[in-house]
Each structure stands twice: as C-alpha cells, then as structure tokens.
Write a protein that binds this DNA or RNA. Structure first.
Lengths: 335, 335
DNA sequence: CTGAAAGCGCTAACAG
DNA sequence: CTGTTAGCGCTTTCAG
C-alpha cells in the first residue's frame, strides 16, 4: 500500500505566507501574540493550501492525546448504541475524540489493550459486561485510567459507574406485589454478569421482605431470542409465574412475544417488566414497564470521573458511582 | 488540567536494557535484524516498564495514521449501530482504528471536517443521510477520501456505497401487487434524502408498470413516532391504502402499531413492508416483511473502496457501488 | 511581535 | 547485528 498524500504542513504555509513556521503555529493557537497583518497572511495561505494544523506532534509534545477509547463488544443491545453516542458527543464538547474499539467476547479486553496504549489514549471507557482479573492487572500495569459500565471497580486504576441495579429491581418487586402477583420469575443475563446478578439479588431480597421466597429463574444472554426460548419453555411446562422480571428490555420483548404466542394475556395473566428503557419499550406493541437506566446520568457520571482521572496522574483508589433509577410503569403491569 | 502521566518511551526501555534506542525500535518492528540476546533484554525491560510502542511518531514519519473516521448523526436507527460495529471490526483486522465523530444534524459534516483533518485520518466514512454541496467542496479541498452510505457520489473525492434502493422498492411493489393490493401508500424519510427518494421512485415506477398510478405519500424522518402519526392520520381520514411501504423498518413498526391501534388487521386489511431488516423485524410482535439491506455486503464494499482509495494518493473519480438486496417476506404481507 | 532553535518518540538510512 | 544520526510537524523557550 502506497503512502497517502502528504497533508500540507505549517512549514508549507509559512513559506507561502512569507513568515516563519512558528508564526503559523502561533496564529492557529489562540492567546498568542500575532499581528493582524501576519495573521491575515497566514490564514490566506492556509486557506489556499487546505491546511489544518496537525494534532499529532502536539500530542507528542504534551504527552496527552485527548483521545478516549470506548470498548464495546456487542451493539445488538440498543442501550449501548445510545450510550456510545452520548459519550462521543459529551467528549467532543471538551475537545476529546473517541477511538472506537470493538472486541469479540465480553472479556477480550486484554487483547486490545496494548493497541489502545500505543495510540496513547488518555483514558478508556469499557462498555463490556465483565472486567476480568487479568484485564484489571493489565490496566494496573499500563496505568491508563478506565471507567467501566455496570462492573464494579477492581483496583486503583478502574473506576465504575453502575446503575442502581439492585434498587431498580427492588422497585419492580414492589410494583409486582402491589399489583397482586404471588409467584415470580426472573430471566437474567449471563450468570457471571455483575449487573444481572445484582438485579436478581435486589429482586429476591425485596420479595423476601414481602414474604415471598421463591423466584423461578432462567438465563438468557441479554438476547431477545434467548428470552423467547426461556419464556416459551416456562409456558410449555406450565410454570409461568404471575410476574416476570427480565434483566433487560430486549429479553422482556422476547418473553412478551413468547408468552403471547402461548396464548397468555399481558398483563391480565402475567405481569412483565424489563430494565433499560430503550426507545422500543415505549412503542405500542410492547408498552413495557421498565427500569429507566438513565443513560444520560450514567454518561455524565462517567465523564466526570474521566475528567478527574485524566487530570490526576496518580489517582487515588477507583471509585464506584451508583446512578439512581426510577420506574416507568406502562401497560405490561397495569391491570 | 495537569498533563497525564508520561508513558515510558523506547529510550527508557533502551536505558534499562542497556542497548540503543534503535535496537528497541527494531525489536518491536518485525522483519528487522535483532539478535536473540538483544531481543530478550529489550522485551524484559519493556515488560518491566509496561512499555508499548508509541504509534504517534510513526504516523508523523509515514504520513499515514491508519485512522479512519466514522461520522454518524443518529444512533436511534439500529441499522447504523450495526453497521458502525461491523466497520470497526473490519477495519481493526487490517490494522486500522476507528475515530468516531458524532454530529448533530444530518448535514453538519462541514463543521467536524477540520477536526478530523487535524487527526490526519486516512479516510472518512459517512453514515449521514446527506452530503451537502458545501461538504462536498470541503472534502475536495481537504482531499481526504470519503465513502458515503446511501448518498450518491458527488465528486472525485467522494465514493459511495448504496443499497439498491429503487430495486428493493420494486420488489416490494411486485409483492404487494401479487398479494392483491390495488391502492398503495408510502411513508418516507426526509424529502431531501436520497435513499428515501430512490425508494419512492422505484416503488412508483414499478407500480406504474403494473398499471397503478397513484401512491399516497407521507413523510416521516425515519423515526417510529413520525410514522405512527402519519399512519394514524391516514386511518383517521379513512385514507388507508391496501398496502403501505415504509422507507425503513423503524417507521414500519410505527405504522404497524398505529394501524393496529386504529382497529385494522395486518395483513388482512393492510399489507405492510419496511426496509433494512433490522433485528427487531424478525421479532414475533412485528414479523415484518422487509428489504434486506445486507449491511455486511455494504460494509465489505465500503472497506474495499476505502482500501483502494487509501492506497492511491490521486484517485480517479469517485465510484458508486450498488449493493444488491433481496426481500424477506414475513407475516405482514402473507394473506 | 517575530524568527531561530531545541526537542517530543519514533523510523530509516548509514557506517561500523 | 548494532549504534549514530537526521528528521517527521509541531510547541515552546529564548533572543532580538
């Protein structure tokens, strides 16, 4: 592959404008003393050449790239698509730029880490459901601040922003009980997944407080299809509970469709709730009661941490911020 | 904001390993002659310092960053989320990395362009519905190769990959006629949008061939809500056609929900089809007949163009590649 | 206000 | 095989 065409440099502009290269640099960096006359000549020459300053040498000099990596594994969940977009916008406002990294499994972070380090990213945002011990150690060695979504902090270099998973699940439990349910089911993400575990724990504990000890559980992988299967199996075995809580909206949609196909009416026969409040939850076909994940609040919290961390070369222990949630009650729980 | 901690440099590694800096460089670039002994010492020192080579100087020297920018405006359409992900993966495989840029309006490309140029990206992928004339001129001036999705090529520097919009729409027209429809409706994206225009054109022209001259049209903005309103208005005014084609799946979902709420049965009273084949189209609630956009084929075509363009500093005129589509017939058109 | 010069961390010639 | 050297394009002293 041939080298691509050389971009014009500040030296090219300087030559054309008949000034020194440093004059060009100063013209493009506000707050520097440049005469009206010089400035005009420089901009004219720059315009003519299609010049825009090169950030790369600046990064070299300043030891900061203003690049933030976002690591994602799976874009099938609309929640992450929205979050990535919100992140990208928020970071752009503060002069940062997002380097996107897609990994295959949920735990393939270690593999991409050296690459991101080589781009000298200032920080990493992980939207991965897990941060393995080995990845955590790798971070500690490379010493790049990282903010992880819905995964607890593991060491000094890892901070995390979590939705109030257990709290949200408890709200669902309260609602189910208030609506008269007496038996309960839960369809979760992967068993190893922190967020899913917390949602189950919060659901269970609150139900126990109401005097209900059993929760029929099944596992999906946060996918529509898995939950469809799981709910269909429940219907098949006539083990459908009065109320079913799914660890995310995508799975709730799958469960809804499966239950309806099995001839059950929602909410008359079964109450259903999800988690995330993705756009589709408000659509007429689903009208799903769900826990509002509040991606804006999560992104804002993450951005705050990121900025604090990027400003401090030797940060204290990683913090875990919990973002409050609320319930959006819709048709699937309204008898 | 303080500078972030300095990453270790090859000089640091060289000092610790007791070799020259260039020896370190050679060790990390395969195909260079380094003795077993030196290599071992270097890797050891690198490991100890947590060193990974800095790509930035390399970019400076080689005049290529291996960075490709992806510009997106709206992540609410799941089609783009999936496409961005596929892109990112494909580019990573060839040693490139994605710089994500989010813009607000569909035509705010001009604004972000200088920024991307400053990062010295090798190419730009635009997932924006429009490429304005001013943006096209800006590209020509900055001379970065760009591949645009579903927007026709405008000049030497702009290539594009388009779904066979008109062809797909014609398939829908044929299907509707075969299923017995006699009156037809279309809900489009923005009027100025190329893809939407092509889909309407293909739909109209094929219907004319079948002897049907009128198409009841309404405009949404590729959004669920807009199509919901539009379809509800049709129902209100008793102007619901036998068959309704929506310019994307999201709008088809909105139309379906509105028509059902108005008491119409799908497909008995109205046939409905969409465009994209997003994952939700296959879900039980919708089971939507749709044109398979084939994002893999589009991404593959775009990647091929990208690589060709990046290899050629003075490319010929921009090419427009049309990716074939097929129909996925589901319940919404099966009487 | 302006230009000359040093240097960020690396790669690529070049001698040895 | 190895070290020395120049230089990518910029920012930043430092003299003038």
């Amino acid at each position: 592959m041939k080298a691509s065409r050389r971009y014009p440099s500040s030296t090219d502009v300087a030559r054309l404008a008949g000034v020194s290269q440093s004059a060009v640099s100063r013209t493009f960096n506000k707050g520097k003393s440049v005469s009206e006359e010089t400035s005009r000549k420089v901009f004219e020459a720059a315009e003519q050449l299609g010049y825009s300053p090169n950030f790369l040498p600046r990064m070299l000099l300043k030891h900061r790239s203003d690049l933030v990596a976002i690591v994602v594994s799976d874009s099938s969940n609309p929640f992450y698509a929205v979050a990535v977009d919100a992140f990208s916008r928020a970071l752009q406002e503060t002069g940062h730029q997002v380097l996107l990294a897609s990994v295959d499994g949920g735990n393939a972070l270690d593999g991409i880490l050296p690459r991101l380090a080589s781009y000298r990213v200032d920080a990493i945002v992980s939207a991965l459901p897990v941060v393995t011990q080995s990845a955590a150690e790798a971070f500690a060695r490379i010493r790049i601040p990282i903010v992880s979504f819905n995964t607890p902090a593991r060491n000094q270099w890892i901070s995390s922003v979590c939705s109030d998973n257990a709290g949200g699940a408890a709200l669902v439990a309260d609602l189910f009980v208030a609506r008269g349910a007496r038996s309960f089911g839960f369809i979760g993400g992967t068993p190893s997944d922190y967020a899913s575990g917390e949602r189950l724990r919060g659901f269970r504990e609150r139900l126990a407080l109401h005097g209900f000890d059993h929760v029929e559980t099944a596992m999906g992988d946060y996918l529509y299809e898995d939950a469809f299967q799981a709910a269909a199996a429940m219907a098949e075995r006539r083990k459908v509970p009065d109320a079913l809580f799914c660890a995310n909206d995508l799975m709730a949609f799958g469960a809804l469709d499966a239950l309806r196909r099995a001839g059950l009416r929602i909410p008359e026969d079964v109450l259903v709730a999800g988690y995330d409040d993705v756009p589709a939850a408000a659509w007429g076909s689903f009208d799903l009661t769900t826990v509002v994940h509040g991606h804006q609040a999560m992104v804002a919290a993450a951005i705050a941490i990121l900025h604090a961390r990027m400003a401090d070369p030797e940060p204290a222990d990683g913090v875990t911020t919990t973002v409050p949630v609320r319930l959006a009650e819709r048709a699937t729980t309204q008898r």
